[in-house]
């Protein structure tokens, strides 16, 4: 077998991984386990995974074109950067939700003022 050309098994595994991810994401959206705003990101991830799984040579080509000595690292770097960005955005979202939750709790406390205090003041 010629070095640099992936064999059919490896190609099949890559394609299967990409396809499984894509299907899993669609199922999660259908079952309402993924809010559509997040789902869009994951559909994009699934599409990339599928593309790289089916055409691994594409990544090698891009890697070489960019002058990367070991082209598969390109895929790893892209994946790590994408995950870092995603995690950071998640923390931003968590911060927004934390603020909303705290304010909701405050408003609930303001509405549910103890009944016995109504007749005072």
């Amino acid at each position: 077998m010629i070095p640099g050309t992936p064999n059919t098994v490896a190609l099949g595994i890559g394609a299967a991984l990409g396809l499984t991810l894509a299907v899993a994401i669609l199922v999660l959206i259908r079952r309402d386990h993924l809010y559509i705003r997040q789902a869009l990101w994951w559909v994009a991830v699934a599409a990339v995974a599928l593309a790289v799984g089916v055409f691994p040579a594409g990544m090698d080509y891009v890697g070489r074109a960019l002058g990367i000595l070991y082209p598969p690292m390109l895929a790893a770097v892209i994946a790590i950067v994408a995950m870092l960005i995603k995690i950071l955005l998640q923390d931003v979202a968590i911060t927004r939700q934390e603020r909303q939750i705290r304010r909701l709790a405050q408003e609930l406390a303001m509405r549910a003022e103890s009944p016995s205090s109504k007749d005072i003041s």
Partner: peptide, 29 residues
Amino acid sequence: RAAGAIVLTPPLHLGAWGAIQTGLRYALE
């Protein structure tokens, strides 16, 4: 309450400042 204070009880633990802000928001309202 027995001493005549108005009492608010947030359903979540808000911390010292969160509790004070509840009071500020009540005052604003």
